[in-house]
Design a binder for these strands. Structure first.
Length: 795
RNA sequence: GCCCCCGUGGCGGAACUGGGAUACGCGCAGCACUUAGGAUGCUGUCUCGCAAGAGUUAGAGGUUCAAAUCCUCUCGGGGGCACCA
């Protein structure tokens, strides 16, 4: 028997497929299009990891199945190559990031090819290629031209270790997402993208797409929409007003004091009235110094200072109430000021307890004297007493002349980085003309070579030290001007790469509308759970914006989004270099071959769940594929019919096809194992049955399937075959086993024709000794019969 | 605190729409084959019981002829958000 020399076989087919152009997507083909997308990898120095294989194999299976179903499939690949690890490597070693990136992408390319993924390699993109980032810059300018990119002096999250400003999104509990250092606050002029202008569209768009529930929930959580009202409070003996946002206007009568954020502008404006201004000032200073973490720490003791001499008027009942400043009120959210209703809000309750402020209960519910945040009917609320709190929200808002508003937790996106390895922001600062976009003809603004990649100690990008880069003429007035030296965050290139795949070589546009119309939207996008808030939100934002500008054909870029679970090290801990438990894909491919690696990763467990690597488990998959090889070589594969295998095959085809769509790859594989186990018991396999089996195996183990396909004297690749159909008649067993229950307890079973009627089954069931024993002399009250399944005799 | 996902043998897990709980794989045990094997093949493998039988899907209750599946509560694990008014 021929030896299963997987190394030779896999090499052979990979070459052959490249020649045949198996992964090639054809623009404007008459076939129906299908666009599968995976998150393009960051080409790190460590090479491919097992997690990549899980995601890429899954979409490779889907893509290969779609091709067999007659679709014109686009399954592209590229490199998200800007980013800190490469830059830090450059800082440490002096190696040009371009050189490191080139080397790393070569390694990745080789590794991906060794796994037999059916990418369209002719559409490869690389975010660090000037031909690519020219368009990232151009797209940024579209935001700028619409007023959605602006520069603002803001408090940034500064990582003192990486010397980089971080987006809120990149700060995890007050620490840098990358290095873990504690983040400080710093004032800095930064480029911002106005994603908040799209909060509603980002939310609404979720209604029409097919994302996993948890993914939608995370997006909604991050946007954080909350409906409420804006109410105005008069300040006594003053023309000044205080606006507050509240989700509970129904509790207005219970507002017993006000709180401003320490940074609130009214604090300065009221300076003359505040008798304890010194105290107030020092509190404000201290609050400003606090890091975000200190300020928002869980269970933090409430602190605050009363603005003595200032009172506000509750518009509902005309009562004068004190005004405080406290850091539990955030300047950036709502109006930066609140009405405090201690009886019905935890934070206000804690604050009132600490500073001995009055608590007035205005909604019934809960225990007297305790906090009640639920609904109820109003009390102590004048003419609104007895009204339901839901209704009172609108009525009281109207009564005091407030207006309904909506607030979002989402903040604008800090788009500046003071780092080297990113796309230069294509803006020129001119003293007379202000911020001037670099004209299209001068794009791309190419990242200049530098001697030192280290960000400067003043916090500016290393580009600020390159005089020839910085000093330019203003494109408008031709006067002296300076180039922006900030670069874009590494989310930029990945916010639109999926559009470029439709038209990757276009030198005139980021992608032509004609091609985008053919390929978009993406039919299925799979990637990591770690990217379902930020990357997903950012790229949806870009796409929705571009749609509004008439530059892309669909508003939502992704019709369907799924996420795979992480692959953990043996024993269920995270894989990491320090633990020494990292599984290198190359070793697996070397020892077992690409097909075993692919099938094993799909078989490990439910696709969306985190799962531990198991060196023993891979042996089981190896046995399965090797046994498949043995059957192909040992069994008689011919004309003789075999009803049992024909029926089993029909069931297997159905199961595997359905499971791929559900991403239940592990059960798809287990059903193929069942088929192979059954085949082992037979002396001969009908050729048609075996051919169909190879076709459904092909997306999972493409090399082995093609090899065995050719063993059957087929000339063309199995990957050009059609996905097999099955005869539904074959799924119906002639005789089925119907379980007989008495009072819901299993008492035996009877073999009956699959379409047997109740009377016949009941008759057969009553003849069983176990059944008559269980029945005894009792009378049958009711019979429940589910055809082909079960009969339940109720006594 | 809020939101989402989840809890089934020694382990990973399966069970379509409420219809035979434990498919498939790992591990383990026995047997066979082999110069040899951490190879291969066969058989067995939820618990109690010699058996007939009974019990069992984190726990408690409920709906139903019938519940791993639906509902309520409790406990436990994972993830996201969080002084967001």
């Amino acid at each position: 028997m021929a030896k299963y020399d997987f190394k030779k076989i896999e090499k052979k087919w990979q070459k052959e497929w490249e020649k045949l152009g198996i992964g090639k997507a054809v623009d404007f083909s008459k076939k129906k299009k299908w666009y599968s997308l995976i998150e393009f990898p960051y080409p790190s120095g460590q090479g491919l990891h097992t997690g990549h294989i899980r995601s890429l194999t899954a979409m490779d299976i889907v893509s290969r199945k779609r091709r067999m179903e007659g679709y014109n499939v686009l399954y592209p690949i590229g490199w998200d190559a800007f980013g800190l690890p490469t830059e830090n490597y450059a800082i440490k070693t002096g190696v040009d990031p371009r050189v490191a990136t080139k080397k790393n992408t070569e390694t990745f390319r080789k590794q991906l090819k060794s796994l037999g993924f059916s990418f369209d390699w002719s559409r490869e993109v690389n975010t660090t290629d000037p031909k690519y980032y020219k368009w990232t810059q151009w797209l940024f300018l579209q935001f700028f031209k619409k007023g959605l990119a602006y520069k603002a002096e803001i408090d940034i999250n500064w990582c003192p270790n990486d010397k980089i400003g971080l987006a809120n999104e990149e700060v995890i509990a007050g620490h840098c997402e990358r290095c873990g250092a504690e983040v400080e606050k710093r004032k800095k002029a930064q480029w911002m993208l106005k994603i908040t202008a799209y909060a509603d569209k980002l939310l609404k768009g979720l209604e029409h797409v097919d994302y996993l529930d948890e993914i939608k929930a995370q997006q909604m959580n991050w946007i954080g929409r909350s409906e409420g009202a804006e109410l105005e409070f008069r300040i006594s003996n003053s023309a000044l007003r205080m606006k507050v946002f509240t989700t509970r206007p129904d509790t207005l009568f219970g507002a017993t004091y006000m709180v401003l954020a320490p940074e609130h502008e009214l604090v300065e404006k009221l300076k003359d009235k505040i008798s304890n201004f010194k105290e107030v000032e020092s509190y404000v200073k201290a609050a400003r110094k606090e890091t975000e973490e200190e300020r928002t720490a869980e269970n933090k003791e409430k602190t605050g200072v009363e603005l003595k001499g200032v009172t506000a008027v509750n518009p509902a009942n005309g009562k004068e109430i004190p005004v405080w400043i406290a850091d539990y009120v955030l300047a950036e959210y709502g109006t930066g000021a609140i009405m405090a209703v201690p009886a019905h809000d935890v934070r206000d309750f804690a604050f009132a307890k600490k500073f001995n402020l009055p608590v007035v209960r205005v909604v019934s519910g809960g225990m007297p004297g305790e906090l009640w945040e639920g609904k109820g009917s109003l009390m102590n609320s004048g003419k609104f007493d007895g009204m339901d709190s839901e209704q009172a929200k609108a009525e009281i808002t109207r009564f005091v002349g407030g207006k309904k508003t909506v607030n979002y937790h989402l903040r604008d996106w800090v788009f500046s980085r003071q780092r080297y390895w990113g796309e230069p922001i294509p803006i020129i600062h001119c003293e007379t003309c202000g911020y001037v976009p670099v004209p299209d003809k001068d794009l791309p603004v190419v990242l200049p070579p530098v001697k030192n990649y280290q960000p400067r100690d003043d916090g500016e990008s290393p580009l600020a030290s390159v005089a020839s880069f910085v000093n330019v003429r203003c494109p408008k007035c031709m006067g002296k001007a300076k180039r922006e030296t900030d670069t874009m965050p590494n989310w930029a290139g990945s916010s639109w790469y999926f559009l470029r795949y439709a038209d990757p070589k276009n030198a005139k546009e980021f992608a032509s509308m004609k091609k985008l119309k053919y390929w978009m939207p993406i039919d299925w996008y799979n990637g990591g759970m770690e990217h379902v808030t930020l990357h997903l939100l950012y790229s949806r934002f870009w796409n929705i914006f571009l749609h509004d500008q008439g530059l892309v054909p669909t508003s939502e870029p992704y019709r369907k989004r799924t996420a795979q679970g992480m692959i953990l090290g043996e024993g269920g801990v995270k894989m990491s270099k320090s633990r020494g438990n990292v599984v290198n894909p190359d070793t697996i491919v070397e020892a077992y071959g690409a097909d075993v690696a692919r099938v094993y990763e799909m078989f490990m467990g439910p696709f969306d769940r985190a799962i531990a690597w198991d060196a023993k488990g891979i042996e089981g998959v190896k046995r399965f594929l090797w046994r498949t090889w043995d059957i192909a070589h040992e069994k008689e594969i011919g004309k003789a019919r075999n009803e049992k295998l024909e029926r089993l095959l029909a069931a297997t085809v159905k199961k595997v096809g359905g499971d791929i769509e559900k991403m239940a790859f592990h059960t798809a594989i287990s059903s193929m194992m069942v088929f192979i186990n059954a085949t082992s018991d037979e002396a001969a396999v009908p050729a048609g049955v075996w051919s169909d089996f190879l076709k459904i195996l092909a997306p999972f183990a493409p090399h082995l399937a093609d090899e065995l396909w050719h063993l059957l004297k087929n000339k063309k690749s199995v990957h050009f075959e059609s996905w097999p159909a099955y005869d539904p008649e074959l799924l119906k067993e002639e005789a089925v086993e119907v379980v007989v229950q008495v009072n819901g307890k299993r008492r035996g079973s009877v073999m009956v024709p699959h379409d047997a009627e109740e009377e016949a089954v009941k008759g057969a069931a009553m003849k069983l000794e176990t059944v008559s024993a269980a029945l005894g002399s009792a009378k049958i009250k009711k019979v429940v019969y589910v055809k082909g399944r079960i009969i339940n005799l109720v006594v």
